Computed example of a mutant assay.
Amino acid sequence: MDRMELADFLRRSRTRLTPSDVGLSAGPRRRTPGLRREEVAQLAGMSTDYYTRLEQRRGSHPSRQMLTALARALRLTDVERDHLFHLAGEEPPRPCGSSGHVRPGLLLILDRLTDLPASVLSDWGEVLAQNTMAVALSGDNTGSNLIRRWFTDPGTRALFPPENHEQHARSHVASLRAVTAARPDDPGPAALVDELRATSCEFEAYWQSHDVVVRRPSPKRFLHPVVGTLDLDCEVLLSDGHSQQLVVHSARPGTDSRQRLELLRVVGLQDLTSSS
């Protein structure tokens, strides 16, 4: 681990970004260029103290998960992400497998969608990034796997009407089966299948049905505990290679759901302000 070079690279990557580049408000009294250390830490999901120690050449060896989070927070390109891994003494993610690295261009689109819930997912359910509206709609799920949570966490299903649970479950399993067939050497999806077949009888039953689908645009009904029922359209934009998906939810103009979505935006901003 090259502490000096790592610290310099992190600092330079941080100072070249503006708050608007990452969907943050600049706020008053900003005297230095770029992002603040606490803003990078917030985006990466780590403590400000730990990130500060990395820039001061005092930090402990960051994990691969933490390096991936830093690359996403600093909007690094694939080449820059690999450089970050090398400076930390780690091998970059294999190009043939699933990557948790979101392209800066995709994150830029995500940051600009301030009034619609939007998330970047891997094709096997990993939540790679969310905007404020997505967090307000379904909670902060970045770093988790939606399919694992659906079959292992009963609270995950509370956001959807019971009559839609079977449809969601079948869709999750069929989508995962398509991914494992397309990339049999990718350890991530394969390990998830083995885990869920061993722990969830429901997953195993759907797996045995051998349905195959890919995620497509479709309407969804959400049961939000604050704003009530939301009937939303779901659009899915695929990245090159279709390994990552930008999922955007919207409500049709003139509907109650449109008004509730606007209320959700206000609620989300209030929560963000109170937690900062």
Rank of each mutant, 00 (worst) to 15 (best):
G89V: 04
N164I: 10
H249I: 00
G45V: 11
D82H: 13
G45H: 09
L76N: 06
V227A: 10
E126L: 02
S276N: 11
Y50M: 08
Q65M: 09
G228H: 10
H83F: 08
P104Q: 04
A182W: 07
S98W: 00
G228L: 04
E262T: 14
E204N: 14
D185C: 10
V102G: 01
W124Q: 01
F151I: 08
S60P: 13
L238K: 03
V226G: 01
R58I: 08
A41V: 08
L107D: 12
V173H: 07
R29Q: 12
V120T: 01
P162D: 01
L116A: 08
T52K: 03
L76P: 06
L232A: 05
E166N: 00
V22D: 11
D123A: 06
R170K: 11
A136E: 01
A44W: 10
R177G: 02
H249P: 01
A174K: 06
A191D: 06
L35F: 04
A71I: 08
F222I: 04
T180V: 15
P154I: 14
E5V: 09
S239E: 10
S138F: 13
P104R: 04
R58Y: 02
K220M: 11
R53C: 03
D231C: 13
L107E: 08
V40H: 04
D271P: 02
Y51A: 06
A182L: 10
R53K: 12
E38D: 15
H101V: 05
L110K: 01
H242I: 01
R215M: 11
F9P: 03
T77A: 10
E91R: 14
Q130L: 05
P117H: 00
W150L: 10
A69L: 04
H242G: 02
L113R: 00
A198S: 15
H172E: 00
I109P: 02
Q245P: 02
R197V: 09
